[in-house]
Design a protein around this nucleic acid. Structure first.
Ligand SMILES: [Zn+2]
Ligand SMILES: [Zn+2]
Ligand SMILES: [Zn+2]
Ligand SMILES: [Zn+2]
Lengths: 163, 163
DNA sequence: TTGCTAATGTTATAATGTTGCAAATTCCGC
DNA sequence: GCGGAATTTGCAACATTATAACATTAGCAA
């Protein structure tokens, strides 16, 4: 599975993307879902960017492709990809990022660097379980959990004095 | 301090609102910040609603007030109120809710009912500390944490079969 | 008063996301 | 292959959320 869990370090990102697409094809097959060309292209674009892409960013690249797409095309593709856990929407950014744990069930949490914009998705079982306990104490039944942490990544924090 | 921590039960909400406004005045005085009529009115409106209000919802009520306001007026007031911790923005809803722990430093987390729309803000130290540990393991320095849990509140979960 | 700063008004526009329906494509049983 | 159902896409218009830019006013102090 594609686990470029460290976007901080340079690496052969084309390989990440290729792996993510391969994974996506497998996952869609398993669910009898159709990873159509548009959907695959959108997933590819999102993966190619290390930073979350807005829907209209995707739209712009599709336009460069020569694909005369309108917003619904992109949003529909994104809905599909989210549905199968291939991308996540970052609510605090109105943007989308490729899931680095696609296929595995996971409780994602996002570390978003204010300086460089990179996003790291991690699975934090301790956070997740503490959160579910807290919800249970209120007799609340969670269906969907959003955890987004804005701050400074190691590289940017050391670069200079942000605080 | 205004702690209508249980929006589930009926109660004298006007008292909550009055208390929240009184607290806000105190907090602003302490910071030499001006809680102008517009800002105070926006805070009041947000508190009066048990459910998070969108900026344009606020705008609509201001219009009913006879206040001929434009979007920037509302967004500025909301920015101010956020700055002093009097309201929170719920990213997953694009809406604002009164802070039930204004003045105290707190790591909020929001339980959002999909059915009735009520929002409960809680302080969950266990979640917060687990989260900071997870971030620290990645050498990430958190500045702002968003935790929003969508699901079913006790009342709505028992009402009928959501699952 | 005068001058400075914070706050507000005003207009326009940007950015993000949705609805509704028609056309095309794909799937599937025949 | 063929025909009908279901899914997917194209397309136009629209709705919602948020900001930019600049003029004006209110608060405050020398
Ligand atoms: Zn994920
Ligand atoms: Zn960074
Ligand atoms: Zn709060
Ligand atoms: Zn409820």
């Amino acid at each position: 599975m594609s686990s470029s869990a460290l976007p901080y370090r340079p690496h052969n990102h084309q390989a990440c993307v290729a792996q993510a697409l391969a994974d996506a094809r497998t996952i869609c097959q398993q669910h009898n879902a159709r990873l159509t060309p548009t959907r695959e292209r959108v997933l590819e674009l999102i993966w190619q960017s290390h930073k979350p892409l807005g829907a209209y960013d995707v739209l712009a690249v599709l336009a460069e492709d020569g694909h005369n797409a309108a917003p619904p095309t992109v949003y529909r593709a994104l809905d599909f990809l989210q549905q199968y856990g291939l991308v996540h929407r970052i609510a605090s950014l109105n943007a989308f990022t490729g899931c680095t744990h696609a296929g595995k069930s996971h409780n994602g949490m996002f570390l978003i660097c204010r300086s460089c914009g990179n996003v790291l998705e991690l699975t934090a079982p301790a956070v997740s379980s503490a959160l579910h306990r807290a919800a249970a104490e209120e007799s609340f039944r969670p269906e969907d959990v959003t955890i987004e942490v804005s701050g400074y990544c190691p590289r940017c924090a050391s670069d200079d004095a942000h605080g």
